[in-house]
Amino acid sequence: MIEILSVTGPASVQDLGRFDQVRFGVGTSGAMDDVALRAGNILLGNDENAAGIEIPMTPFKLRFGRDTAFALTGADVEAEIAGRTIPPWWRTQARAGDVLTLKAMPRGARSYLTVSGGIDVPIVLGSRSTQFRGEFGGLHGRPLQVGDILPCASWSVTIRDLGIEPAEITLARSSAAADETTVRVVIAGEYDGFDAATQQLFWQSSWKITPQSNRYGYRLQGPEVKPTVPIEKRSHGIVPGVIQIPPNGQPIIQMRDAQTSGGYPKIATVISADLWRVGQARLGSRLRFEQTSYADALAAETEKSAYLDRIRASVRLVEECLT
C-alpha cells in the first residue's frame, strides 16, 4: 500500500481509460499521457492497462508501506527516495517505509507513478480511472488527498534499476520554438464554415495554453477564429482531441475528462497519436497545429506503437542479458 503524504493539484488514479461506456454518455477518462503510463507498466512487467497515479504538480510525497518496485515516467521530475535521486523514465525498488518525493517538474506537465502489479482500486464500469465529472472510479471518484491509502496489487518481486528513453526523445518532432509543442490534427466537420483567411489564422498562430486548461479540456488564447456565419449545431458526440470553436473564437481542445457531446463547431481534431503531447504541454506554453491526413495519422499511430514495441523487446532483452 501507498500513503499520500503531500499533494499539490489534482493527482488521480488513472489507467488507459473507460472505453466501452461512451454510448451511455460516460467519458473515457484515463491517463492524459497514455504513452508514459504504458511505458511505466512495461518497465515493471505489468499489464499496460494497470492503474498508476497521474501527478500534475509538485511537490508530491508518498510513503511505501511495503517493499515495492515502481517506475516514474512522463514529465521530467526531480525525484528522490531514501536519499537517492531517481533519473527520468526509471524503475527502481522501494523498501517498506521509504518516502518518495517529487520536488520539481522542470519539463512536461504530468508525471506517472506506476507500481508493480498496479494500483488496486476497484474496477468501475470496466476501468480504474478516476472520473472527475461523474465522481466515480479511482479512489472514491476524487483527486488524491493527504492521508489517502492506496492499495497495490501485491507482487513482491525485486527488480534492478533500469531506465528507458523518454518518448519525447524517441518520438521527437521538430518544433518551431522552445516552449512550443506542435501537434498534428485532421480537419473536422465544420472546417469549411471558416473562410480561407480564418483557416490560415488557425494554422499559423502559436496558441497560448491558458490556466483554464486541465483534464477536461485545454482553453487556448490567440487571435479570434470565427466562422463566416455563426454555426449553431445540436449537441452531438465528441471525443478527446476535438478542437471546438466557441462563440468567442478561442479554441478548446477536449481532453480525457471531456463531456461526450457538445454543440460548438469543430474546426479540427488532434490525432490520437499526438494527444499525449498535448497532455504534457505546460500551462502558459504554446501549441501549434499542423494539418495532417488520415493516412499520416494512422502512420503516426504505428510509429507510437513501434516505440512501445521496442521498449517491450529491449526490457526483455536486458532482463535476459543481466540475469
Binding site: 534499476d161 533500469l162 528513453e165 529491449s314 526490457v315 532483452l317
Partner: peptide, 27 residues
C-alpha cells in the same frame, strides 16, 4: 551523474549505458 571529487554512496548511479531504448545504470 557524478563529477571528480564528489562523495558518493555504494550503489550510486555513475552514468548510463544506452542500448537501443534502454538506459542501464553503471553503479
Amino acid at each position: 551523474f557524478v563529477e571528480p571529487g564528489q562523495r558518493i554512496e555504494a550503489g550510486a548511479i555513475i552514468g548510463l549505458v544506452k542500448v537501443g531504448l534502454i538506459y542501464a545504470p553503471v553503479v
